[in-house]
Write a protein that binds this DNA or RNA. Structure first.
Lengths: 126, 126
DNA sequence: GTCGGACTTCGAGTGCACTCGACGTCAAGC
DNA sequence: GCTTGACGTCGAGTGCACTCGAAGTCCGAC
């Protein structure tokens, strides 16, 4: 029996689409940041489907907002555990949201001070 | 001739005021992030005055907004060089300001997406 | 004068998140 | 059927910014 070409992407295609390297994608998998292992072809090669990619995009958002890899792993574990812990997942996300807001406020504050410094240069020598 | 107690703080006092460790303060100095070496007592101990502390507060702001140590060193070098390069200093600060703004926009965007995810949890199970 | 704690320098160690290299395998085009 | 390039695993290396430890010195209180 010949199987139809399975859907999804090779690791190279997924990496290109996500703006990551294949090395990083395998690293994320080894750190258990993925919801499950991506499928494999008969020859043992990874196949990424749309769900995999969407989850990794979420991982990228969490990383880009400063969530440490081990915290993402904990969140992914909750998601892997299946239904019944949505309250915990929500708590994780809300705590992270608060942390990000705090960080944004702090950076904004520093930015204001830097702008003051810039305005000083402009006033004196501009 | 007895000298009046020199003004300023020990490294420990400066560290406490800045929320840094003495290790970090010496590290910053070794990385040439300071405007000049802080003064020394006759016994060779560092003395930090108000100007030193204010500059280090600026360094903290630049660090907290993501400027790498080597970029701060470059900026400090410009400042140490004395008058005549204010346009370059301004360019450095403005480039950094733009970078920080870009970063803020990106994080804000990710935050929105995370909030959507949170809203999803609330809608379905909340 | 002596004791404790803060100071000195120097180099090594830590934690994080990748990032790379080595080396072997395998699928597809020519 | 043979090359070629993407894939596989594994462990080691990198860059950044601290952070710590060791070993010795010095100041102030008693």
């Amino acid at each position: 029996m010949t199987t139809v070409q399975s859907p999804g992407m090779t690791i190279g295609e997924a990496a290109a689409r996500l703006g990551l390297t294949t090395h990083t994608l395998r690293y994320y998998e080894s750190e258990q940041l993925l919801l499950g292992s991506p499928g494999r072809t008969a020859a043992g090669r990874r196949r990424y489907d749309e769900d995999d990619v969407r989850w990794i995009e979420m991982v990228q958002r969490l990383r880009a907002t400063g969530m440490p890899v081990r915290a993402i792993r904990a969140y992914a574990e909750l998601c892997r555990a299946g239904a019944g812990n949505e309250d915990q997942r929500l708590a994780v996300l809300e705590a992270h949201r608060d942390e990000v807001r705090r960080h944004l406020a702090e950076v904004t504050d520093h930015l204001d001070a830097i702008n003051h410094k810039i305005a000083g240069y402009r006033t004196v020598w501009g």
